[in-house]
């Protein structure tokens, strides 16, 4: 039976097999009552809820709210991180001024600041955006700073020997050389931003994914909770895809990407 054995081999090596089997077992356990609805909704129920919430507009409207929080937070955090890294990376005086503070900041887990931010900014949008901004600043700062300092000194010297001014050196040599590091930092920042979003949205939200989850918890709607978890996962994937797309465009000169 060569066809059957081939089929089983293809299935056996397929990366889809185990997730599908997992879903099937989950569904079966739900149908037989092994997993009660109030503990965890069945995959089919989750899919139904997803469709329902999408059609009713409940999911999209709350997603937009969450998305805006991430976007604002990231915009502020990433911009600040880049500016500070440029200050610290491009001048010794800037490093002396900026780096110690950033290192101190690094020792404080951002989420531990939540109570303080609530005291300062209340319970509206501001503390949520501020938390995201604060958390996403550091990966960008750290990576870009070390990227700038790690630019091949021989390339800088070579370019300088062709009469480039300091500003031209920064623009043509140092920043492009540090770009791969910046993108690594950006990727970390994006995933941290989503992580912080999840926690920040637990702060008395009246809209957003966190609000949906909180509500669902109160009504024991595990299907809605799972839908929201799925959306968080999709957000994370999308963020990663975004950085990959930027990398593919910005780093075309790299051999690994040239081969592709």
């Amino acid at each position: 039976m060569p066809i059957l054995s081939k089929l089983s081999r293809t299935l056996g090596s397929s990366r889809w097999l185990s997730p599908i089997a997992f879903l099937a077992v989950w569904e079966l356990a739900s149908r037989t009552g092994l997993i009660p609805q109030r503990t965890l909704a069945a995959p089919s129920a989750v899919a139904g809820t997803l469709a329902e919430m999408t059609l009713s507009g409940e999911l999209p409207s709350n997603l937009v709210v969450s998305f805006e929080r991430v976007l604002f937070g990231l915009a502020i955090g990433v911009t600040t991180g880049i500016v500070l890294a440029l200050l610290a990376g491009l001048s010794r005086r800037g490093e002396a001024a900026v780096d110690p503070i950033m290192q101190i900041k690094r020792t404080i887990p951002t989420l531990a600041l939540t109570p303080l931010f609530i005291v300062w900014f209340g319970i509206g949008e501001t503390p949520k955006v501020a938390l995201i901004a604060f958390a996403s600043m550091f990966p960008v700062y750290l990576n870009l700073f070390s990227g700038i300092r790690g630019v091949d000194a021989r390339l800088v010297e070579g370019a300088r020997s062709f009469g480039l001014s300091q500003a031209e050196l920064v623009w043509h040599v140092i920043l492009p050389g540090a770009l791969p590091s910046l993108l690594v930092g950006l990727r970390y920042s994006l995933s941290i931003a989503i992580l912080v979003l999840v926690v920040a949205e637990q702060i008395n939200a009246s809209a957003g994914l966190g609000y949906l989850i909180n509500n669902a918890r109160d009504f024991l709607r595990t299907d809605i909770i799972v839908v929201c978890l799925l959306v968080y996962a999709v957000l994370g994937l999308a963020a990663d895809g975004l950085v990959r797309a930027i990398e593919a465009r910005a780093l075309v000169w790299r051999p690994a990407l040239l081969d592709a």
Partner: peptide, 14 residues
């Protein structure tokens, strides 16, 4: 004047 180094020192991103 112009220098040619042992390693060509071309900027890989240009």
């Amino acid at each position: 004047r112009a220098v040619v180094f042992q390693d060509a020192r071309l900027l890989p991103w240009k």
